[in-house]
Amino acid sequence: MRARIGPWIAIIVGMIYFLVPLIATFEFSLRMKRGEYSFEAYRIVLGDPNFQASFTYSALIAVAAIIFGVLLVVPTAYVVQLKLPRLRPLVEFITLLPLVIPAIVLVFGYLRMYNSSSWIPLTNSVRGTDFLLTCAYVTLALPYMYRAVDTGLRAIDVRTLTEAAQSLGSSWPRILFQVILPNVRVAVLSGAFLTFAIVIGEFTMASLLNRPAFGPYLQLIGANRAYEPAALAIIAFIITWACMGLIQLFGGGRQNAARR
């Protein structure tokens, strides 16, 4: 019995550490109307056209970043695993760099490389800047995306499956899209949800590239209002956890995933 107490204390302390601020924020977000609990702050936030616009914008950029990321990471991880296993440490190191280099450094680097008087003046146009932002998010999500896909690839016998497909006459694109990708679907999905969660809350890059994303909107509201930021924090929290829940759902349902 005694041995059980220590871990429980640790868990309870941890829960308090996480839950108290959350509950307090939630409670505060309900107090917009004097003297009663209401979802008034949420109504205002969700009804704000800027909220809708910035959230839609970030969601679109997130989807684009996911597509780019998958197209970049899956073939790379596949080739490294199949043909260049000796490069694995190097590639892993590169994919970890975005965790080490602060976003602010990255974005200044981008601005230097792609400003209006550079060789590739991406910041000249709105679409160009959107593209740059998408690429920046692919980079930010790279550590998570690469790890997820790499783990997925290790779980299947990449080499033999590839050779089986090759001996049946298959070309490389077909092997990649019909044999490899479907078998790492679960891993790709968890990478995708992580990317989504990162992009939705990101502030630095969107702000410095001056794009109307959700992160800067959060900051703006936070600086000027009292109750709405609390409501927004709870909303952002729910979105993030929904993403995590979806990862759990797809990751845990491996058998289901294999069935179709």
Binding site: T160, E163, A164, S167, L168, G169, N183, A258
Partner: peptide
């Protein structure tokens, strides 16, 4: 010739059926 141009059937020790 590349493997996919040789028209050779191959059976592996580990079966290697496509799980999906």
């Amino acid at each position: 010739l590349r493997p996919n141009q040789r028209n050779i059937g191959m059976v592996f020790q580990a079966y290697a059926l496509f799980p999906n």
